[in-house]
Amino acid sequence: MPIYAQNVLGLRCPVCLAREIDVVLYVDGEEYYCIKCGYTGTEAETREAYKPIRGKFKLLRTRVKSG
């Protein structure tokens, strides 16, 4: 069975993603878990854990003038 069929939300592990590694989370009931590291969390916890990944991008909301 394809991984994404088990995880229709398409959530990725926030710990691995912080290392620029895509690992789609598996789900067991309400709990999502990573098969590559020790991360576990609900959907809400996982989305919360994405915030620091975006937080490092200080120009995330900025139109930058080039040239």
Binding site: L59, L60, K65, S66, G67
Partner: peptide, 12 residues
């Protein structure tokens, strides 16, 4: 904004 910023960077 990044998508447009990258276009601008190439344009420059």
């Amino acid at each position: 904004p990044y998508n447009l910023n990258l276009v601008d960077q190439y344009l420059a």
